[in-house]
Write a protein that binds this DNA or RNA. Structure first.
Lengths: 153, 153
DNA sequence: GTTTATGCAAAAGGTTTGCACGTTG
DNA sequence: CAACGTGCAAACCTTTTGCATAAAC
């Protein structure tokens, strides 16, 4: 189950490559490291968190590079910005095939992901009704997760 | 149609009063001005925006008061925090009866509100499935609004 | 009079940028 | 070698806090 065909990451890389070449951007080693690491994880990174991880792989790297790379990935559609109301931007890789939404525990900060096609269909119909052309969406349920409920009683 | 019975604002005020007294907080004039103004509008205020408006009513007021009052309203459930990915906190009055979600135009920044009970029901069922106790939720669709679509072609 | 609220200014925290130097093509 | 990318440090912007003073109870 760990074995993968060459789909997801390759598609992502290609998308980035196209974006890059279209704008005369060069292929820098450090940016590549950041991109590869970020896209291979399934996490909601703050800039700081990603910075800390990358520093272990690429010690000389600067904060700005992480910052600029995340912005870049965001612009070319490979990272989507999340806001979990903790005062910092967060980004998660968005492999086009698997969008999901979030349950966010206000006590322990845990993020539970879910996906619900019926909700998405209803969202589309709402958008259509407003003639609104949706590019992305976020659904977040804030509250208390199961384990934090038992902790308090 | 402009005439109102004493429902919505009164309920809000009572909720705040209870919250206030429970904690030995005093009834300050300036805070009252901020609260009244905020709750009477139907807007998504950043701290700065509200500050500018209040300054016209109550010129000597300081930024911190706006700030602290919004936090207070948020804690006692009369203001809900919104994030429209513009780098600042925003708050909107949340009169318990009328929750709604947002379409956010990426071009002109317009916010279109909508409400969809079917989506809310599905959200509840998702939460139940995860034994998650929801306190609040946000659904945001980012994209291009009808009028911005015609502008570009 | 004691306690809470406020304004001010400074601190803090996160994000962004200018610039000199390093890399890429 | 020309153009882009990077690290560093400083700038920026929003949010938060400490403290002396003012207002509420």
């Amino acid at each position: 189950m760990k074995m993968k065909f060459n789909t997801k990451e390759d598609i992502d890389t290609n998308r980035l490559e196209r974006f890059r070449k279209e704008r005369g951007m060069k292929n820098s080693t450090r940016r590549a490291v950041v991109v590869a690491h970020f896209l291979s994880r399934d996490r909601h990174y703050s800039v700081e968190e990603l910075y800390q991880e990358i520093k272990r792989i690429e010690p000389g790297i600067g904060y700005s590079t992480i910052y600029r790379t995340l912005k870049l990935l965001n612009r070319c559609g490979l990272a989507s910005q999340c806001d979990f109301a903790d005062g910092r931007q967060r980004f998660e890789p968005c492999h086009s095939t698997k969008h999901h939404d979030h349950l966010i525990c206000r006590k322990c900060g845990r993020i539970i992901e879910f996906k619900n096609d019926d909700i998405e269909k209803l969202q589309e119909s709402v958008a259509r009704r407003h003639q609104f052309q949706v590019e992305s969406h976020q659904l977040k349920l804030f509250g208390i997760c199961a384990s934090c409920q038992t902790k308090t009683g």
